[in-house]
Design a binder for these strands. Structure first.
Lengths: 116, 116
DNA sequence: CCGGAATATGTGGCAAATGATATATACTGC
DNA sequence: GCAGTATATATCATTTGCCACATATTCCGG
């Protein structure tokens, strides 16, 4: 859909904004990484990811047991620019900076490194 | 306040986004100009302007009978950039383009031209 | 002080978002 | 097919947001 006010409505919730910031920075993350990074219950993360998915801001693809999310590849240029500007503007403040630290310190991350 | 998710939540409503876009383009507008541009009831506009004011997006000042609103001068640089990017991205699509046209065609506009 | 114009706020009802918890689904390895 | 892990969805209670309408407030001119 990509309706402008729906973009901001989606960003207008702390959990979704934190998720999108991590995805914008890391490129692609599975649900358990987001759950660990934000330190929230898994259903909470899944619900907000579903919200972002239905609004068209993220895409998901399953890979075995894990479902990976990333910022949608079909966004208008101005939307990508808004996301990038926002990420740069808030990445060093709470709670976003802490999310990145927690994610970086997460043990047994799945993915390319084959730790799981 | 300028808490990121509160800023975005304020934009997450069509009426408020349309108001903010007109303000971003025109610099300063009174309530009756916004009411005419969006073609909505005055209490609707006032209510959403109050929402934007409380979120920190706009400032108002009274000048006689009219109350003028403008984009707040104390927004962080990245927020102003998000707003400018958004405005440029959506200004040519509905309903935003129509709002600008209606505002431009409004008769008896108050302000510097002293028409009222 | 009074009437009228511009703007703001109060109220009631209702739809939608949220949070916490429980449960269902999808996949892997055996 | 079974057990276990990862993820998604259902449910319920609560809160929040919104709309339409009525009314209040602020200000100006006379």
């Amino acid at each position: 859909m990509h309706i402008p006010e729906q973009l901001f409505a989606a960003l207008g919730h702390e959990v979704r904004l934190r998720c999108l910031l991590l995805l914008q920075r890391e490129g692609e993350l599975c649900v358990c990484e987001l759950t660990h990074g934000l330190d929230l219950a898994q259903p909470t993360i899944s619900r907000h990811l579903a919200h972002l998915r239905e609004a068209g801001w993220v895409e998901d693809h399953r890979q075995g047991l894990w479902v990976y999310y990333r910022v949608s590849s079909r966004l208008p240029a101005w939307v990508r620019e808004v996301l990038a500007t926002t990420a740069a503007g808030i990445v060093n403040s709470a709670p976003f900076a802490g999310d990145l630290l927690r994610l970086g310190a997460m043990p047994n991350r799945p993915g390319a490194r084959g730790c799981a």
